[in-house]
């Protein structure tokens, strides 16, 4: 993660639109100061100058009061309207993506993001994208309202359940930036963030082909393990549910109800997740685990199995 100084006072901007948004913010700050600093100075100066007992010229004249009123009502209004127009232009531009944009599908679900690249690869919570090319992200949610927020690109859009919204941008600077969920979505709303890594075209292709494999499946698997609720029962979070601990399960011998003992390899774990009632455990109580067939997508299942393989070392799994 790019180490920013503890007191960075301005967020990095990674696209032309972001830089233009910065210009609007700075321009508007200048206008705000023009409108407010005189008020602050006037009040302190008047408070001291016209204090009770200070002799001062307190005569008043009649003429200008209506004119003053109208002027300090309309002039600020007209000045601010300029920024409304500029902001609206940029906003509308960000809502109409160019036709040749690369489309990335994003799915938000309680407390993790899942991004699907056009070439099929998918990743959890982190997003790798090329620069100098328009990218369109189509977002939907599987449960509550989330919102994908990319501060480096000055953009965010809500992820609505059963509805697809979209946002587009053309990044122009490489680097690793933050990615957040900005619509409150429940207990672990603040855990639902990750890294947006912007790379040159070549690096991106290279990452797509094999860089993808080294992506740490453990962190992604852990996010899935929590998001699909496995942690609830298997880590004993939900009281009263007798579910076997899964730490170190991979490769261990498992005694089944019908007397057979088999080693728990990847296929066994995968079959057990998709159909828990098949080859039940010896002495196992009532079968409570729901079947995840059709719920978990194949690539997520691989990550989950990869995570379970890796849990033999760390009982709690890689805590991000």
């Amino acid at each position: 993660m790019k180490a920013e100084s503890a007191l960075a006072l301005w967020p990095p901007a990674a696209s032309a639109a972001a830089v233009e948004t910065d210009h609007i913010i700075l321009g508007f700050t200048v206008l705000t100061l023009l409108l407010t600093v005189p008020v602050f100075l006037a009040i302190t100066y008047f408070a001291l100058r016209y204090r009770q007992g200070e002799e001062a010229d307190r005569s008043t004249d009649e003429r200008r009061s209506v004119l003053i009123e109208i002027s300090w009502m309309l002039i600020p209004y007209v000045l601010t309207l300029f920024f409304f127009g500029w902001g609206a232009k940029l906003f509308i531009a960000s809502r109409h993506p160019p036709p040749d944009a690369m489309v990335v599908e994003a799915v938000g679900r309680q407390w993790m993001w899942k991004f699907q690249h056009p070439t099929g690869q998918s990743e959890i919570n982190d997003l790798h994208l090329p620069i100098d090319q328009p990218v369109r992200i189509r977002i939907t949610s599987q449960d509550v309202i989330h919102a994908l927020y990319l501060p480096a690109l000055r953009l965010q859009i809500a992820a609505l359940p059963d509805r697809t919204t979209e946002i587009w941008f053309k990044a122009d600077r490489t680097g690793t930036y933050r990615l957040y969920c900005s619509e409150y979505c429940g207990t672990d709303h603040s855990v639902m963030d990750g890294n947006l890594t912007l790379m040159t075209q070549a690096e991106y292709q290279d990452w797509l082909t094999h860089g993808h494999a080294q992506q740490s499946n453990v962190a992604a698997g852990r996010a899935l393990y929590e998001s699909y609720g496995c942690a609830g029962c298997h880590d004993g979070a939900v009281a009263g549910v007798k579910a076997p601990g899964l730490a170190g399960l991979y490769g261990r011998a498992v005694h089944l109800a019908d007397g057979r003992t088999i080693t728990a390899d990847a296929d066994y774990i995968r079959a057990k997740i998709l159909n828990p009632n098949e080859n039940r455990l010896a002495g196992g109580g009532k079968q409570v685990m729901p079947s995840f067939r059709g719920v978990i997508r194949p690539d997520d299942l691989d990550r989950l199995v990869g995570y379970l393989k890796a849990t033999d070392r760390v009982a709690e799994g890689a805590q991000r």
């Binding site: 913010i25 409108l35 407010t36 009040i43 409304f84 960000s94 900005s182 619509e183």
Partner: peptide
């Protein structure tokens, strides 16, 4: 007097949020 100073600042930062492009960056922050 504290009110006048802080209320002016509060009011005008509201206009930041009302500007569409700025809102996309600082909404829900």
């Amino acid at each position: 007097m504290g009110y006048i100073g802080l209320f002016v600042l509060g009011g005008l930062t509201g206009l930041y949020l009302a500007t569409l492009a700025i809102n996309q960056h600082i909404h829900a922050t």
